[in-house]
C-alpha cells in the first residue's frame, strides 16, 4: 500500500521538526527565563505577558501572525527573501519555527520560575570566591534550576510533536515535506484511509509514551544528584 510509506516519512519529519523546534525553544526559553528572573527593568511584566501569549492564543491565530510576519509581504519574510533568498512559508523550516513559537512558553515559564527559586546569595557567594558571572551561571544557577527547566523542555517537545494548527497555516500539508504526523492523521481520516490513520495514531501514541517514560527516568532525584 502506497499510503503506509507516508507514516514513516511523517514520523521522521515529525521527529526532525519537533527536535529542532525544542532546541530553539529551549535555548531561547532558558535565556529569556533567566533575564526575566534576574533582570529589573521597566516593562518586565508586559514582556512576560507577550512571551506567554503563544500558550493561550488559538494556534490558527498564531499561525496567521506568523504568516503575516514571515510571508513575502511580511516585515521579516520580505527581508529574508530580498537579502538571502530564503522563503520559510510552505517549508519544513517554517514548520520548525511554528512549532518552536508554540512550544517556547512551555520552556520559558518553568525556566523563569526555576531561576527565581535559586537563592541569589549562592550566586553572590560564588562571585566573592572569584568566579565570573558567566561561570557562576553554568556552575551554580543552571545546575540548581535544571530540574524545573528539564520538565519544561520535555513538555515543549511533546507540544511541538503534537503541533497542528500553526504548522498547517505556515507550512501547509505537503506529503514528505511538511506533512507531520499530527497533520497526516487528519489527512488520512479525511481521505477515509482508516488503516493508515490507525497506524499513525499507534505510532504517535508510542512516541508519546516513550517521552513520558524518559521524563519519569530523568525527573526528580536522579537529576538533582548531579
Amino acid at each position: 500500500m502506497a499510503g503506509m510509506d507516508t507514516v514513516w516519512v511523517a514520523l521522521a519529519l515529525s521527529l526532525k521538526v519537533a527536535g529542532l523546534a525544542t532546541v530553539l525553544a529551549a535555548l531561547s526559553g532558558v535565556a529569556t527565563g533567566f533575564v526575566l528572573a534576574r533582570g529589573r527593568f521597566p516593562g518586565r511584566d508586559v514582556l512576560d505577558t507577550l512571551l506567554t501569549l503563544p500558550m493561550v492564543l488559538p494556534p490558527t491565530v498564531l499561525g496567521y501572525y506568523l504568516l503575516v510576519l514571515l510571508g513575502r509581504q511580511g516585515a521579516l519574510g520580505g527581508w529574508l527573501q530580498a537579502q538571502w533568498g530564503i522563503n520559510l512559508i510552505f517549508s519544513w523550516q517554517g514548520a520548525v519555527i511554528a512549532a518552536a513559537v508554540v512550544a517556547f512558553p512551555l520552556v520559558f515559564k518553568p525556566a523563569r520560575a526555576a531561576f527565581e527559586a535559586v537563592d541569589g546569595q549562592l550566586e553572590q557567594a560564588a562571585q566573592v570566591l572569584g568566579i565570573s558571572r558567566l561561570a557562576v551561571f553554568f556552575r551554580i544557577t543552571l545546575p540548581l534550576a535544571w530540574r524545573g527547566i528539564l520538565a519544561g523542555i520535555l513538555l515543549a517537545f511533546a507540544r511541538a510533536l503534537g503541533e497542528f494548527g500553526a504548522t498547517l497555516m505556515v507550512a501547509g500539508s505537503i506529503p514528505g515535506k511538511t506533512q507531520t504526523l499530527s497533520i497526516a492523521v487528519y489527512e488520512a481520516v479525511q481521505a477515509g484511509q482508516d488503516d493508515v490513520a490507525n497506524l499513525l495514531v499507534g505510532v504517535i501514541s508510542a512516541v508519546c509514551i516513550c517521552v513520558l517514560l524518559a521524563a519519569g527516568y530523568l525527573a526528580p532525584g536522579r537529576v538533582a544528584q548531579r
Binding site: Q121, L122, Q124, A125, V128, S132, I140, P143, L144
Partner: peptide, 20 residues
C-alpha cells in the same frame, strides 16, 4: 572593583553552601 577582583573571604550568616 568587582566582587571577584576584591579577593575577600565572606562568611554568610546561613553559610550559602552550594547544595549540589
Amino acid at each position: 572593583l568587582t566582587p571577584q577582583a576584591r579577593q575577600l573571604g565572606y562568611l554568610f550568616q546561613d553559610y550559602a553552601l552550594f547544595p549540589h
